[in-house]
Write a protein that binds this DNA or RNA. Structure first.
Lengths: 233, 233
DNA sequence: TTCTATTGTTACAAATGGAGACAATAATAG
DNA sequence: CTATTATTGTCTCCATTTGTAACAATAGAA
Protein backbone atom coordinates (compact mmCIF):
# COMPACT_ATOMS: atom_id res chain seq x y z
CA UNK A 1 0.00 0.00 0.00
CA UNK A 2 1.60 3.30 -1.09
CA UNK A 3 1.68 6.36 1.14
CA UNK A 4 -1.20 8.79 0.53
CA UNK A 5 -0.53 11.42 -2.11
CA UNK A 6 -0.77 15.04 -1.04
CA UNK A 7 -2.32 16.30 -4.23
CA UNK A 8 -5.89 15.25 -3.47
CA UNK A 9 -6.01 16.56 0.12
CA UNK A 10 -6.09 19.98 1.76
CA UNK A 11 -2.63 20.43 3.30
CA UNK A 12 -2.18 21.14 7.02
CA UNK A 13 -5.76 20.11 7.74
CA UNK A 14 -7.05 16.95 9.40
CA UNK A 15 -9.95 15.73 11.49
CA UNK A 16 -10.03 13.44 14.47
CA UNK A 17 -13.10 11.48 15.53
CA UNK A 18 -13.92 10.50 19.09
CA UNK A 19 -16.34 7.68 18.43
CA UNK A 20 -18.39 6.76 21.47
CA UNK A 21 -20.10 3.44 22.05
CA UNK A 22 -21.78 1.92 25.09
CA UNK A 23 -21.52 -1.70 26.17
CA UNK A 24 -21.75 -3.64 29.42
CA UNK A 25 -22.45 -0.46 31.36
CA UNK A 26 -19.28 1.24 30.16
CA UNK A 27 -18.68 4.19 27.84
CA UNK A 28 -16.07 3.31 25.22
CA UNK A 29 -14.26 4.92 22.30
CA UNK A 30 -12.52 3.55 19.24
CA UNK A 31 -8.72 3.69 19.00
CA UNK A 32 -6.34 2.63 16.24
CA UNK A 33 -3.05 0.92 16.88
CA UNK A 34 -0.29 1.89 14.44
CA UNK A 35 1.91 -0.75 12.79
CA UNK A 36 5.00 -1.91 14.67
CA UNK A 37 5.05 1.00 17.13
CA UNK A 38 1.96 -0.06 19.08
CA UNK A 39 1.07 3.61 19.41
CA UNK A 40 -2.58 4.38 19.94
CA UNK A 41 -4.43 7.20 18.24
CA UNK A 42 -7.89 8.46 17.42
CA UNK A 43 -9.27 7.50 14.03
CA UNK A 44 -8.97 10.53 11.81
CA UNK A 45 -8.32 11.54 8.27
CA UNK A 46 -7.84 14.28 5.74
CA UNK A 47 -10.24 16.42 3.76
CA UNK A 48 -10.28 16.13 0.00
CA UNK A 49 -9.90 19.31 -1.96
CA UNK A 50 -13.46 19.19 -3.32
CA UNK A 51 -15.18 17.71 -0.29
CA UNK A 52 -17.25 19.25 2.49
CA UNK A 53 -15.58 19.00 5.88
CA UNK A 54 -18.50 17.16 7.40
CA UNK A 55 -18.57 14.76 4.48
CA UNK A 56 -14.93 13.93 5.02
CA UNK A 57 -15.67 13.03 8.63
CA UNK A 58 -18.67 10.91 7.62
CA UNK A 59 -16.53 9.16 5.01
CA UNK A 60 -13.95 8.38 7.67
CA UNK A 61 -16.61 7.08 10.03
CA UNK A 62 -18.07 4.86 7.34
CA UNK A 63 -14.67 3.42 6.45
CA UNK A 64 -13.99 2.48 10.08
CA UNK A 65 -17.44 1.35 11.22
CA UNK A 66 -19.47 0.55 8.09
CA UNK A 67 -22.20 2.88 9.35
CA UNK A 68 -23.88 5.88 7.78
CA UNK A 69 -26.40 8.17 9.52
CA UNK A 70 -24.28 8.53 12.61
CA UNK A 71 -24.93 11.23 15.20
CA UNK A 72 -22.04 13.63 14.75
CA UNK A 73 -21.02 16.84 16.48
CA UNK A 74 -18.07 19.14 15.97
CA UNK A 75 -16.56 20.18 19.31
CA UNK A 76 -13.22 21.96 18.83
CA UNK A 77 -10.40 22.75 16.44
CA UNK A 78 -6.86 22.23 17.68
CA UNK A 79 -4.20 24.51 16.29
CA UNK A 80 -1.31 24.97 18.68
CA UNK A 81 2.31 24.66 17.51
CA UNK A 82 2.96 21.88 20.03
CA UNK A 83 0.84 19.54 17.94
CA UNK A 84 3.49 19.19 15.25
CA UNK A 85 5.70 16.18 16.02
CA UNK A 86 7.26 15.21 12.71
CA UNK A 87 9.57 12.61 14.24
CA UNK A 88 6.71 10.56 15.66
CA UNK A 89 4.83 10.81 12.41
CA UNK A 90 7.90 9.79 10.45
CA UNK A 91 8.33 6.69 12.61
CA UNK A 92 4.71 5.73 12.03
CA UNK A 93 5.03 6.15 8.28
CA UNK A 94 8.30 4.25 8.10
CA UNK A 95 6.83 1.40 10.14
CA UNK A 96 4.45 1.10 7.23
CA UNK A 97 7.45 0.00 5.15
CA UNK A 98 8.19 3.02 3.01
CA UNK A 99 11.01 5.52 2.78
CA UNK A 100 9.63 8.93 3.81
CA UNK A 101 11.08 12.08 2.24
CA UNK A 102 11.82 14.88 4.73
CA UNK A 103 9.38 17.18 2.98
CA UNK A 104 6.56 14.64 2.84
CA UNK A 105 3.26 16.47 3.43
CA UNK A 106 2.10 14.34 6.35
CA UNK A 107 5.12 15.50 8.36
CA UNK A 108 3.88 19.11 8.25
CA UNK A 109 2.10 20.98 10.95
CA UNK A 110 -1.61 20.03 11.06
CA UNK A 111 -4.73 21.74 12.31
CA UNK A 112 -7.21 19.16 13.49
CA UNK A 113 -10.95 19.56 13.71
CA UNK A 114 -12.43 17.39 16.44
CA UNK A 115 -15.78 15.62 16.02
CA UNK A 116 -17.47 13.21 18.33
CA UNK A 117 -19.83 10.51 17.15
CA UNK A 118 -22.42 8.50 19.05
CA UNK A 119 -23.44 5.12 17.73
CA UNK A 120 -24.89 1.75 18.59
CA UNK A 121 -22.01 -0.48 19.70
CA UNK A 122 -23.71 -3.60 18.35
CA UNK A 123 -24.04 -2.27 14.82
CA UNK A 124 -20.38 -1.51 14.28
CA UNK A 125 -18.21 -3.44 11.85
CA UNK A 126 -14.61 -2.48 12.61
CA UNK A 127 -12.03 -1.96 9.84
CA UNK A 128 -8.48 -0.63 10.45
CA UNK A 129 -6.94 1.89 8.07
CA UNK A 130 -3.76 1.51 6.02
CA UNK A 131 -1.40 2.64 8.77
CA UNK A 132 -2.94 0.54 11.53
CA UNK A 133 -2.90 -3.06 12.68
CA UNK A 134 -6.18 -2.80 14.49
CA UNK A 135 -9.07 -0.70 15.62
CA UNK A 136 -10.80 -1.58 18.87
CA UNK A 137 -12.96 -0.34 21.72
CA UNK A 138 -11.37 1.06 24.88
CA UNK A 139 -13.13 2.03 28.09
CA UNK A 140 -13.09 5.78 28.57
CA UNK A 141 -12.58 5.30 32.32
CA UNK A 142 -9.28 3.49 31.84
CA UNK A 143 -7.81 4.84 28.63
CA UNK A 144 -4.19 3.97 27.79
CA UNK A 145 -1.78 6.71 26.78
CA UNK A 146 -2.46 8.19 23.34
CA UNK A 147 -0.09 9.70 20.81
CA UNK A 148 0.23 13.44 20.09
CA UNK A 149 -2.39 15.52 21.89
CA UNK A 150 -5.09 12.91 21.45
CA UNK A 151 -5.61 12.60 25.22
CA UNK A 152 -6.51 16.26 25.30
CA UNK A 153 -8.83 15.83 22.35
CA UNK A 154 -10.67 12.99 24.07
CA UNK A 155 -11.06 15.00 27.26
CA UNK A 156 -12.46 17.95 25.36
CA UNK A 157 -14.89 15.67 23.51
CA UNK A 158 -16.04 14.16 26.78
CA UNK A 159 -16.48 17.57 28.35
CA UNK A 160 -18.57 18.77 25.42
CA UNK A 161 -20.61 15.57 25.40
CA UNK A 162 -21.44 16.08 29.08
CA UNK A 163 -22.41 19.70 28.55
CA UNK A 164 -24.64 18.73 25.63
CA UNK A 165 -26.24 15.70 27.25
CA UNK A 166 -29.31 17.39 28.66
CA UNK A 167 -29.56 20.19 26.17
CA UNK A 168 -29.50 17.99 23.08
CA UNK A 169 -31.01 14.77 24.48
CA UNK A 170 -28.43 12.66 22.75
CA UNK A 171 -28.10 9.75 25.15
CA UNK A 172 -30.34 7.53 23.07
CA UNK A 173 -27.92 7.54 20.14
CA UNK A 174 -25.73 5.10 22.05
CA UNK A 175 -28.53 2.54 22.40
CA UNK A 176 -30.56 0.35 20.03
CA UNK A 177 -33.89 1.69 18.76
CA UNK A 178 -35.72 0.26 21.79
CA UNK A 179 -34.32 0.26 25.30
CA UNK A 180 -35.37 0.13 28.91
CA UNK A 181 -35.34 3.10 31.24
CA UNK A 182 -32.58 1.40 33.20
CA UNK A 183 -30.38 1.14 30.11
CA UNK A 184 -30.92 4.79 29.32
CA UNK A 185 -30.04 5.72 32.87
CA UNK A 186 -26.85 3.68 32.62
CA UNK A 187 -25.85 5.64 29.53
CA UNK A 188 -26.38 8.92 31.36
CA UNK A 189 -24.40 7.65 34.33
CA UNK A 190 -21.53 6.47 32.14
CA UNK A 191 -21.33 9.81 30.36
CA UNK A 192 -21.61 11.94 33.48
CA UNK A 193 -19.43 9.65 35.57
CA UNK A 194 -21.86 9.66 38.48
CA UNK A 195 -24.79 7.67 39.79
CA UNK A 196 -28.25 9.11 39.27
CA UNK A 197 -31.40 8.60 41.32
CA UNK A 198 -33.63 6.07 39.66
CA UNK A 199 -36.95 7.70 40.48
CA UNK A 200 -35.87 11.24 39.67
CA UNK A 201 -34.38 10.12 36.39
CA UNK A 202 -37.53 8.28 35.37
CA UNK A 203 -39.80 11.17 36.33
CA UNK A 204 -37.58 13.67 34.53
CA UNK A 205 -37.36 11.79 31.27
CA UNK A 206 -41.04 10.88 31.17
CA UNK A 207 -42.01 14.49 31.87
CA UNK A 208 -40.07 15.63 28.80
CA UNK A 209 -42.51 13.79 26.54
CA UNK A 210 -39.80 12.63 24.20
CA UNK A 211 -40.16 8.91 24.85
CA UNK A 212 -42.66 6.50 23.41
CA UNK A 213 -43.59 3.52 25.55
CA UNK A 214 -43.81 0.12 23.89
CA UNK A 215 -44.31 -3.49 25.01
CA UNK A 216 -42.69 -4.95 28.10
CA UNK A 217 -39.39 -6.76 27.97
CA UNK A 218 -39.46 -10.20 29.58
CA UNK A 219 -35.88 -11.08 30.38
CA UNK A 220 -36.56 -14.28 32.31
CA UNK A 221 -35.46 -12.66 35.55
CA UNK A 222 -37.78 -13.07 38.50
CA UNK A 223 -39.09 -9.57 38.84
CA UNK A 224 -41.40 -7.07 37.22
CA UNK A 225 -40.66 -6.64 33.51
CA UNK A 226 -39.64 -3.12 32.41
CA UNK A 227 -41.25 -1.31 29.50
CA UNK A 228 -39.29 -0.71 26.34
CA UNK A 229 -39.03 2.88 25.14
CA UNK A 230 -37.92 4.63 21.98
CA UNK A 231 -37.30 8.29 21.24
CA UNK A 232 -40.10 10.02 19.39
CA UNK A 233 -39.27 11.08 15.84
CA UNK B 1 0.08 48.34 -0.05
CA UNK B 2 0.98 45.02 -1.74
CA UNK B 3 -1.27 41.97 -1.56
CA UNK B 4 -0.34 39.55 1.22
CA UNK B 5 2.21 36.91 0.27
CA UNK B 6 1.15 33.30 0.65
CA UNK B 7 4.51 32.04 1.81
CA UNK B 8 4.16 33.11 5.44
CA UNK B 9 0.61 31.81 5.96
CA UNK B 10 -1.03 28.40 6.25
CA UNK B 11 -2.96 27.94 3.00
CA UNK B 12 -6.71 27.25 2.98
CA UNK B 13 -7.02 28.29 6.61
CA UNK B 14 -8.49 31.46 8.08
CA UNK B 15 -10.23 32.69 11.18
CA UNK B 16 -13.20 34.99 11.61
CA UNK B 17 -13.88 36.97 14.76
CA UNK B 18 -17.32 37.95 15.98
CA UNK B 19 -16.39 40.80 18.30
CA UNK B 20 -19.18 41.73 20.68
CA UNK B 21 -19.57 45.04 22.44
CA UNK B 22 -22.40 46.58 24.43
CA UNK B 23 -23.49 50.20 24.27
CA UNK B 24 -26.70 52.14 24.90
CA UNK B 25 -28.55 48.97 25.82
CA UNK B 26 -27.70 47.25 22.53
CA UNK B 27 -25.48 44.31 21.68
CA UNK B 28 -23.16 45.15 18.78
CA UNK B 29 -20.48 43.54 16.66
CA UNK B 30 -17.64 44.90 14.57
CA UNK B 31 -17.84 44.74 10.78
CA UNK B 32 -15.35 45.78 8.11
CA UNK B 33 -16.37 47.48 4.88
CA UNK B 34 -14.25 46.49 1.87
CA UNK B 35 -12.86 49.10 -0.51
CA UNK B 36 -15.08 50.27 -3.37
CA UNK B 37 -17.52 47.37 -3.13
CA UNK B 38 -19.12 48.42 0.15
CA UNK B 39 -19.36 44.78 1.08
CA UNK B 40 -19.46 44.03 4.79
CA UNK B 41 -17.56 41.22 6.45
CA UNK B 42 -16.36 39.97 9.79
CA UNK B 43 -12.83 40.94 10.77
CA UNK B 44 -10.64 37.90 10.23
CA UNK B 45 -7.22 36.87 9.20
CA UNK B 46 -4.76 34.12 8.43
CA UNK B 47 -2.53 31.98 10.60
CA UNK B 48 1.22 32.27 10.20
CA UNK B 49 3.11 29.07 9.60
CA UNK B 50 4.86 29.19 12.97
CA UNK B 51 2.06 30.68 15.03
CA UNK B 52 -0.47 29.16 17.43
CA UNK B 53 -4.02 29.42 16.15
CA UNK B 54 -5.19 31.29 19.23
CA UNK B 55 -2.28 33.69 18.94
CA UNK B 56 -3.24 34.50 15.39
CA UNK B 57 -6.73 35.42 16.53
CA UNK B 58 -5.38 37.54 19.37
CA UNK B 59 -3.03 39.28 16.96
CA UNK B 60 -5.97 40.05 14.69
CA UNK B 61 -8.01 41.39 17.59
CA UNK B 62 -5.17 43.59 18.73
CA UNK B 63 -4.67 45.02 15.24
CA UNK B 64 -8.37 45.97 14.99
CA UNK B 65 -9.09 47.11 18.53
CA UNK B 66 -5.76 47.91 20.19
CA UNK B 67 -6.70 45.60 23.05
CA UNK B 68 -4.95 42.61 24.56
CA UNK B 69 -6.39 40.34 27.26
CA UNK B 70 -9.71 39.97 25.52
CA UNK B 71 -12.20 37.29 26.47
CA UNK B 72 -12.08 34.86 23.57
CA UNK B 73 -13.91 31.64 22.77
CA UNK B 74 -13.76 29.35 19.78
CA UNK B 75 -17.25 28.30 18.68
CA UNK B 76 -17.16 26.50 15.31
CA UNK B 77 -15.12 25.69 12.23
CA UNK B 78 -16.76 26.20 8.87
CA UNK B 79 -15.68 23.89 6.07
CA UNK B 80 -18.39 23.44 3.47
CA UNK B 81 -17.64 23.74 -0.23
CA UNK B 82 -20.21 26.52 -0.62
CA UNK B 83 -17.89 28.87 1.25
CA UNK B 84 -15.53 29.20 -1.71
CA UNK B 85 -16.54 32.20 -3.82
CA UNK B 86 -13.41 33.16 -5.74
CA UNK B 87 -15.20 35.74 -7.89
CA UNK B 88 -16.28 37.79 -4.90
CA UNK B 89 -12.83 37.54 -3.38
CA UNK B 90 -11.23 38.56 -6.68
CA UNK B 91 -13.42 41.65 -6.87
CA UNK B 92 -12.43 42.61 -3.35
CA UNK B 93 -8.75 42.19 -4.09
CA UNK B 94 -8.92 44.07 -7.38
CA UNK B 95 -10.77 46.93 -5.70
CA UNK B 96 -7.64 47.24 -3.66
CA UNK B 97 -5.90 48.33 -6.87
CA UNK B 98 -3.85 45.28 -7.84
CA UNK B 99 -3.92 42.76 -10.65
CA UNK B 100 -4.82 39.37 -9.14
CA UNK B 101 -3.43 36.21 -10.76
CA UNK B 102 -5.99 33.42 -11.20
CA UNK B 103 -3.99 31.13 -8.97
CA UNK B 104 -3.52 33.69 -6.20
CA UNK B 105 -3.75 31.87 -2.84
CA UNK B 106 -6.51 34.00 -1.37
CA UNK B 107 -8.86 32.85 -4.14
CA UNK B 108 -8.61 29.25 -2.91
CA UNK B 109 -11.09 27.39 -0.82
CA UNK B 110 -10.78 28.36 2.87
CA UNK B 111 -11.67 26.66 6.12
CA UNK B 112 -12.53 29.27 8.71
CA UNK B 113 -12.33 28.88 12.45
CA UNK B 114 -14.87 31.06 14.23
CA UNK B 115 -14.07 32.84 17.49
CA UNK B 116 -16.16 35.26 19.44
CA UNK B 117 -14.72 37.98 21.64
CA UNK B 118 -16.32 40.01 24.42
CA UNK B 119 -14.89 43.40 25.27
CA UNK B 120 -15.58 46.77 26.78
CA UNK B 121 -17.01 48.98 24.03
CA UNK B 122 -15.48 52.09 25.55
CA UNK B 123 -11.92 50.79 25.49
CA UNK B 124 -11.79 49.99 21.80
CA UNK B 125 -9.63 51.90 19.33
CA UNK B 126 -10.81 50.94 15.86
CA UNK B 127 -8.33 50.41 12.98
CA UNK B 128 -9.37 49.05 9.53
CA UNK B 129 -7.17 46.50 7.73
CA UNK B 130 -5.50 46.88 4.35
CA UNK B 131 -8.51 45.73 2.32
CA UNK B 132 -11.06 47.84 4.16
CA UNK B 133 -12.23 51.42 4.23
CA UNK B 134 -13.64 51.21 7.70
CA UNK B 135 -14.43 49.13 10.71
CA UNK B 136 -17.46 50.01 12.80
CA UNK B 137 -20.06 48.79 15.28
CA UNK B 138 -23.37 47.38 14.07
CA UNK B 139 -26.35 46.42 16.18
CA UNK B 140 -26.84 42.67 16.23
CA UNK B 141 -30.62 43.14 16.13
CA UNK B 142 -30.53 44.94 12.80
CA UNK B 143 -27.49 43.59 10.97
CA UNK B 144 -27.08 44.43 7.30
CA UNK B 145 -26.34 41.70 4.79
CA UNK B 146 -22.85 40.22 5.07
CA UNK B 147 -20.61 38.70 2.44
CA UNK B 148 -19.94 34.95 2.04
CA UNK B 149 -21.44 32.88 4.88
CA UNK B 150 -20.69 35.50 7.50
CA UNK B 151 -24.37 35.84 8.44
CA UNK B 152 -24.35 32.16 9.37
CA UNK B 153 -21.14 32.61 11.33
CA UNK B 154 -22.65 35.47 13.35
CA UNK B 155 -25.78 33.46 14.11
CA UNK B 156 -23.72 30.51 15.30
CA UNK B 157 -21.61 32.80 17.47
CA UNK B 158 -24.71 34.32 19.00
CA UNK B 159 -26.22 30.91 19.63
CA UNK B 160 -23.06 29.72 21.38
CA UNK B 161 -22.82 32.93 23.37
CA UNK B 162 -26.38 32.42 24.64
CA UNK B 163 -25.74 28.82 25.57
CA UNK B 164 -22.58 29.79 27.42
CA UNK B 165 -24.00 32.84 29.18
CA UNK B 166 -25.04 31.16 32.41
CA UNK B 167 -22.54 28.36 32.40
CA UNK B 168 -19.48 30.55 31.97
CA UNK B 169 -20.69 33.79 33.62
CA UNK B 170 -19.29 35.89 30.83
CA UNK B 171 -21.73 38.79 30.77
CA UNK B 172 -19.40 41.03 32.74
CA UNK B 173 -16.78 41.01 30.01
CA UNK B 174 -18.93 43.43 28.03
CA UNK B 175 -18.97 46.00 30.83
CA UNK B 176 -16.41 48.23 32.56
CA UNK B 177 -14.77 46.92 35.72
CA UNK B 178 -17.57 48.34 37.89
CA UNK B 179 -21.22 48.34 36.89
CA UNK B 180 -24.68 48.47 38.36
CA UNK B 181 -26.99 45.50 38.61
CA UNK B 182 -29.26 47.14 36.09
CA UNK B 183 -26.44 47.41 33.54
CA UNK B 184 -25.56 43.77 34.01
CA UNK B 185 -29.19 42.82 33.55
CA UNK B 186 -29.31 44.85 30.34
CA UNK B 187 -26.35 42.89 29.01
CA UNK B 188 -28.10 39.61 29.75
CA UNK B 189 -31.28 40.85 28.12
CA UNK B 190 -29.45 42.04 25.02
CA UNK B 191 -27.69 38.69 24.63
CA UNK B 192 -30.75 36.55 25.29
CA UNK B 193 -33.07 38.84 23.36
CA UNK B 194 -35.70 38.82 26.11
CA UNK B 195 -36.67 40.81 29.17
CA UNK B 196 -35.74 39.39 32.54
CA UNK B 197 -37.41 39.89 35.90
CA UNK B 198 -35.52 42.46 37.94
CA UNK B 199 -35.94 40.84 41.35
CA UNK B 200 -35.21 37.29 40.20
CA UNK B 201 -32.15 38.43 38.31
CA UNK B 202 -30.79 40.32 41.30
CA UNK B 203 -31.42 37.48 43.70
CA UNK B 204 -29.91 34.93 41.34
CA UNK B 205 -26.70 36.82 40.71
CA UNK B 206 -26.19 37.75 44.34
CA UNK B 207 -26.74 34.14 45.41
CA UNK B 208 -23.92 33.00 43.13
CA UNK B 209 -21.41 34.87 45.29
CA UNK B 210 -19.41 36.02 42.30
CA UNK B 211 -20.04 39.75 42.71
CA UNK B 212 -18.35 42.18 45.01
CA UNK B 213 -20.37 45.17 46.17
CA UNK B 214 -18.74 48.57 46.15
CA UNK B 215 -19.84 52.18 46.75
CA UNK B 216 -23.08 53.61 45.48
CA UNK B 217 -23.33 55.38 42.15
CA UNK B 218 -24.95 58.83 42.38
CA UNK B 219 -26.14 59.65 38.88
CA UNK B 220 -28.01 62.85 39.71
CA UNK B 221 -31.34 61.20 39.04
CA UNK B 222 -34.04 61.63 41.65
CA UNK B 223 -34.19 58.14 43.07
CA UNK B 224 -32.30 55.67 45.21
CA UNK B 225 -28.70 55.26 44.05
CA UNK B 226 -27.69 51.75 42.95
CA UNK B 227 -24.61 49.96 44.23
CA UNK B 228 -21.68 49.35 41.93
CA UNK B 229 -20.49 45.76 41.57
CA UNK B 230 -17.49 44.01 40.12
CA UNK B 231 -16.80 40.35 39.45
CA UNK B 232 -14.63 38.64 42.04
CA UNK B 233 -11.19 37.60 40.81
C1' DT C 1 -42.10 68.57 53.15
C1' DT C 2 -44.07 65.98 49.57
C1' DC C 3 -43.58 63.49 45.45
C1' DT C 4 -41.46 60.44 41.88
C1' DA C 5 -38.62 56.98 40.13
C1' DT C 6 -35.72 53.32 41.11
C1' DT C 7 -33.43 50.15 44.18
C1' DG C 8 -32.71 46.42 47.68
C1' DT C 9 -35.19 43.15 50.25
C1' DT C 10 -38.80 40.30 51.81
C1' DA C 11 -43.04 37.39 51.48
C1' DC C 12 -45.75 34.09 49.34
C1' DA C 13 -46.98 30.93 45.52
C1' DA C 14 -45.66 27.74 41.95
C1' DA C 15 -42.49 24.65 39.91
C1' DT C 16 -38.71 21.56 40.28
C1' DG C 17 -35.79 18.00 42.16
C1' DG C 18 -34.10 14.87 46.09
C1' DA C 19 -35.24 10.95 48.94
C1' DG C 20 -37.87 7.40 50.41
C1' DA C 21 -42.25 4.55 50.64
C1' DC C 22 -45.23 1.45 48.44
C1' DA C 23 -47.81 -1.35 45.42
C1' DA C 24 -47.33 -4.22 41.13
C1' DT C 25 -45.35 -8.14 39.07
C1' DA C 26 -42.24 -11.89 36.73
C1' DA C 27 -39.98 -15.77 37.85
C1' DT C 28 -38.40 -19.05 41.53
C1' DA C 29 -38.68 -21.86 45.69
C1' DG C 30 -41.42 -24.33 48.61
C1' DC D 1 -50.93 -22.79 44.71
C1' DT D 2 -48.51 -19.70 47.82
C1' DA D 3 -44.63 -17.30 49.59
C1' DT D 4 -40.41 -15.09 48.32
C1' DT D 5 -37.25 -12.06 45.83
C1' DA D 6 -35.74 -8.51 42.85
C1' DT D 7 -36.96 -4.80 40.14
C1' DT D 8 -40.18 -1.50 38.21
C1' DG D 9 -43.62 2.28 38.01
C1' DT D 10 -45.76 5.59 40.78
C1' DC D 11 -46.76 8.42 44.68
C1' DT D 12 -45.83 11.29 48.75
C1' DC D 13 -43.27 14.36 51.45
C1' DC D 14 -39.90 17.77 51.78
C1' DA D 15 -36.32 21.12 50.51
C1' DT D 16 -34.72 24.13 47.05
C1' DT D 17 -35.34 27.15 43.35
C1' DT D 18 -37.84 30.43 40.67
C1' DG D 19 -41.97 33.46 39.42
C1' DT D 20 -44.56 37.28 41.19
C1' DA D 21 -45.85 40.89 43.83
C1' DA D 22 -45.42 43.86 47.71
C1' DC D 23 -42.91 47.04 50.55
C1' DA D 24 -39.61 49.94 52.60
C1' DA D 25 -35.51 52.92 51.56
C1' DT D 26 -33.75 56.87 49.29
C1' DA D 27 -31.78 60.62 45.87
C1' DG D 28 -33.20 64.35 43.88
C1' DA D 29 -37.08 67.47 42.10
C1' DA D 30 -41.23 70.06 42.93
Amino acid sequence: MPLPDSSQYIPHLAFDSVIFGFSKGKLKILLMEYHATGWLALPGGFVKKDEDLENAVKRGLFERTGLTDIYLEQFHTFGSMERAQPNYMKTILQANGHPVPDDYWMLDRFFSIGYYALLDYEKVNLTPDALSDSIAWYEVETLPELIFDHDKIVQKALQTLRENLDRKLIGGNLLPERFTMNELQSVYEAILGEKLRRTSFQRKLLSLNILERHEKLYTGKSHKAPYLYSFKR
